[in-house]
Design a binder for these strands. Structure first.
Lengths: 227, 227
DNA sequence: CGTTCTGAAATTGCATGCACTTTTGCAGTG
DNA sequence: CACTGCAAAAGTGCATGCAATTTCAGAACG
């Protein structure tokens, strides 16, 4: 009957977790959507038990919310909560960038500069999708440059938690160019080993990202009130 | 059977999670200890299914490690990893303290000062256990003073994750007095609305805590080698 | 005497079943 | 027509069972 595969390629739960969390982060389901445990079980050809375990992971990540005896929904957020998330993200990036200025290796600096220079073309050519990809890579380099795996983990987790509420980060035509300028300040400060300038630039950059992001918050959805 | 008396209110899994995570954080089981799923199920008078779900939460918190088909163990850490955790903690506290200087309410400042003054007596009298309790409260006030629930959450989670590896924080007789002095600088900077001084004091404080903490890292345990 | 092989016991991971809660549909009442 | 009450349906949370994997004891071997 149930013979999906004889050999375990990874752990079943982790595979599902990766797929579903990516879909949530990518905005496949809007915040507030109820996750159908049985449907997911059928989709992945497993029973509801591992699905429930996955729900635990998702909730611990902050991507979903558990309501006792009422199932699991994609995490919602208020306008105020979203500001707090952005602020925390800014502080985490500032911390990473501050450490970058102190201990980034020459190779890492070179890699950062190269990525930044490549993005210059994308910013001027206006391919927002490609710029988004480079933007992700750029910030990953900043996290890695902190040489602190735990801080890196926090930054990536927070970015993932933030992402479901953002829509079309670069919906403004001028945004990639502005983003590139802000990155420029961060890179310059890191190369100059100026901690204060780097952290300040990182914080300002994130605040600009926040201001220029279309977001999806709870008040925008027209569902039942949060009890 | 018997034993339904063990704290049974709210949701079953969350109750177990709170109890077990507290015990791990309190050092009840040393890092590397294997958690007995069946034993825990019997202890809480539940089946292994909710225990497994709790394991998912614990692992997501970073308190335990999951090994495929080999059970769950209390998280271990290397000397280097511990330094990274302390550093991340320092950055999170610095971020909180920086926000405290900008937006703590007068009532919160007063509360902070009162707690700090109370701890002065404890520091001089040398009751390290009581001072530890006040130390926890003091730092909680700093997290709350950030007025950022998410940052507060990160700080508390990181502190919990750090705690299993610390033993006898104030094993040095002079440590409470030193700690009080360091707190003094933080409080003074907050009252003076000096962001830089506050964040710097917070970072230095955490580095002192690290240096004066007896820690339990992987190399200190004499178990089987890590595969 | 130490190493490798082997099979049984213990343990993990998942499927299934069941009791309980929540939700929904539909009368009956005002 | 709206509102309340009740019962059926759906869904959640946990217990139990089973197959696959891991671990370990002891024997065979070098």
């Amino acid at each position: 009957m149930t013979r999906p595969q004889l050999v375990r390629e990874g752990t079943t739960v982790d595979d599902m977790l990766r797929v579903v969390s990516d879909e949530i982060v990518a905005g496949h389901w809007p915040p507030g959507t109820k996750l159908d445990a049985q449907g997911l079980a059928e989709r992945f050809a497993v029973s509801r038990t591992p699905v429930r375990e996955m729900f635990g992971h998702l909730t611990a990540m902050g991507l979903t919310e558990r309501r006792p005896n009422r199932g699991v929904i994609v995490a919602t957020i208020s306008e105020e909560g979203l500001d707090h998330l952005f602020e925390a993200m800014a502080e985490l990036e500032a911390a990473c960038v501050g450490l970058c200025t102190q201990r980034m290796s020459d190779a890492q600096k070179q890699q950062l500069v190269l990525a930044h220079e490549r993005s210059a073309k994308l910013a001027s050519e206006g391919s927002t999708e490609d710029y988004e990809a480079f933007n992700l890579e750029f910030h990953n380099l900043l996290y890695a440059g902190s040489h602190n795996p735990y801080l890196q983990e926090l930054a990536i987790a927070t970015r993932a938690r933030l992402r479901p509420f953002r829509r079309a980060q670069f919906f403004l035509e001028s945004r990639p160019a502005r983003s590139h300028e802000e990155h420029e300040r961060i890179v310059a400060a890191i190369l100059a080993s100026d901690v204060d300038a780097a952290t300040t630039a990182a914080r300002k950059h994130l605040m600009k990202v926040r201001d220029s992001s279309q977001t999806v918050v709870e008040s925008q959805r027209h569902r039942h009130r949060p009890s």
